[in-house]
Design a protein around this nucleic acid. Structure first.
Lengths: 216, 216
DNA sequence: CACATACTGATTGTATCCAATCTCAAGGAT
DNA sequence: ATCCTTGAGATTGGATACAATCAGTATGTG
């Protein structure tokens, strides 16, 4: 059961999915009346959800003209990933030394989920579990604001990342990286875990930048 | 002339001032009906402005209970400043080598404003000019998203920083720091400028943490 | 033909109204 | 006395209605 306390909360989730899945295409105007109707709500909660997405950089707002799905340039992409780097580095620098053995076990459990999803070829399950893995790790930093900022950076490129996990070769590489990461975490090796996280990020940026430059 | 295109834009500015000035106290509930009336608008644009502030961490939202002005704990404060550090370091690391001579002249002009305001004892003018100085410097990075994130961190502690510039000794110290910063920038000395910025931050965190721990 | 102007439909911005939910106090049961 | 229930008042959540603004087209003018 999805525990939606307010309509706008549910709208927000649906909008995120629509953007990440490309159902709302980058650059496209968000016509509030139509979208609200299709979501079965009025424009009021929709507009509040859009304000949240604006703050995250997922949509751009022009007064009296409306909201438009963000359309990242290559320069934007470079900036997003550079910011992601420094935020993630910090999360690991702080968090890795704080990891308990139970934390690492938990991370391994999630990793099993990732691999199971990969084996069964369920791309969206892989995406979700992969995300759970990394954010569980980031959360070890006990820095909720930092984690939220990292999440925003991930979200910012969601619309362009859809294809990554589709290729079996990528999946295999990712699994290997994750296993190496677990080893580094067991050793509480901050430098190594940062390096591995960076490598992981590089794969992502490569895919996304291809998608973006093709579109430009 | 304040060029306000939409009501919510003006409301947002006013709310920021009210929070930074303590007119809306940390922890206090934001009663929408009363506040909207006092601002001369309906609740709709007010609520959208509050959503923006929520995204910045300036207010906390509880569904069906409303918005409350953020009340930072010492832990929160530590996190905010740690995040500020890594973001500002990055902005300088990227920006300082890109500074043109004209940029530096411009920064010196702003510095004159700061000092003039300090001499005349206009605290709010000092605050504003000081902010202009630092953000003009950050913007040299050409990383608008990064600059926005830094701005959010500054805003997060505005409600607690009010007293800092009141003490003449602090003003003097700040001016000296700024002048040292200009020297470092002329030399395009990244490490030194980062160190000076860190020192500047330390002064701020000291004041704010005093205010917060007194309140706790 | 180029350019400015006025109009029209579409879309956003805001006010108002009512429903849903929460808080808190009073009363009753154990 | 403690805990649970119930209700009233206050406050938020959302739908609707209307005003303000914009984009694009048609019309007029040089």
């Amino acid at each position: 059961m999805s525990e939606t306390v307010t309509a706008q909360e549910g709208v927000l989730r649906e909008l995120r999915v629509m953007i990440a899945s490309g159902q709302l295409e980058p650059g496209q105007q968000v016509v509030q009346d139509a979208l609200a109707a299709s979501l079965g709500v009025s424009r009021v909660p929709l507009r509040e959800a859009l304000k949240v997405l604006e703050g995250e950089g997922q949509v751009i707002y022009h007064p009296h003209r409306g909201y438009f799905v963000a359309n990242l340039s290559v320069d934007d992409l470079v900036e997003v990933y550079r910011i992601r780097s420094i935020l993630e580095d910090e999360a690991l620098r702080v968090g890795v030394p704080l990891l308990t053995d139970e934390d690492i076990e938990y991370l391994e459990d999630i990793l099993s989920d990732v691999e199971a999803a990969a084996t069964s070829g369920d791309v969206s399950a892989v995406t979700a579990a992969n995300r759970r893995f990394h954010f569980a790790l980031f959360e070890a930093s006990n820095m909720p604001r930092l984690v939220r900022m990292i999440r925003n950076q991930w979200d910012a490129t969601d619309a362009y990342r859809g294809v990554y996990f589709a290729a079996p070769a990528n999946l295999k590489a990712m699994n290997a990286e994750h296993r190496n990461m677990i080893v580094a975490l067991r050793n509480r090796d901050v430098a190594e875990s940062i390096a591995l996280q960076a490598a992981h990020r590089e794969n992502s940026v490569a895919v996304v930048s291809q998608v973006i430059s093709k579109a430009e």
